[in-house]
């Protein structure tokens, strides 16, 4: 991995947090794996926001903290930790808006090498659930798995 990830704090088996550091300051980021069907998880990622005693994740936040590569490397590290305990599970992720999904597509296209050989990434559309990821194709969501799905 060319960008070193931030130190990760494991909140529980499915929740990880880290602090992004950059020109906009220190921003607490949270990666949460939400099981939506047994063995199938949704990857939720965003800034941690406080509301009284409770916390939530704002996945529409745009931090622009100048550390995108490092943040991505950290999210990938959480995926590796996740799959260590659940190698046979599948993780789905989708942007909170079509624009953000397109942005994720672009980030995957540019930084696919960060995923290394330990993880497999696929695209998906309404018509075809799992497809080999091609940079020039359009996808509505993405799959990550520890083992090849195609």
């Amino acid at each position: 991995m060319s960008a070193a990830p931030y130190p990760i704090k494991t909140e529980d088996e499915l929740v990880f947090s880290f602090v992004s550091e950059g020109p906009r300051g220190r921003i607490k980021k949270v990666v949460k794996y939400q099981e939506f069907s047994p063995g199938y998880f949704n990857l939720a990622f965003g800034d941690q926001v406080q509301n009284g005693g409770s916390t939530a994740i704002d996945d529409k936040a745009s931090s622009d903290n100048g550390d995108m590569k490092k943040v991505l490397a950290t999210v990938i590290s959480t995926l590796e930790l996740f799959f260590e305990k659940r190698p046979e599970c599948a993780v789905l992720f989708k942007g909170s808006t079509p624009g953000r999904t397109l942005l994720y597509h672009r980030i995957i296209k540019n930084y696919r090498h960060l995923f290394g050989e330990a993880l497999y990434i696929y695209g998906g559309t309404e018509e075809i659930l799992i497809q080999t990821f091609f940079p020039e194709k359009e996808y509505q969501f993405f799959w990550v798995a520890k083992f090849p799905l195609i």
Binding site: Q34, S37, Y40, D47, A56, K60, L129
Partner: peptide, 30 residues
């Protein structure tokens, strides 16, 4: 901050529903 929290919570409930729908639409029902 409060608005962001409300927005965040709503967004995640919807995402879980969307993810379920994705599998349902592909015939992978519960």
């Amino acid at each position: 901050v409060e608005n962001r929290t409300v927005r965040a919570n709503l967004g995640f409930d919807k995402k879980i529903e969307d993810a379920k729908k994705i599998l349902d639409n592909a015939g992978l029902t519960g």
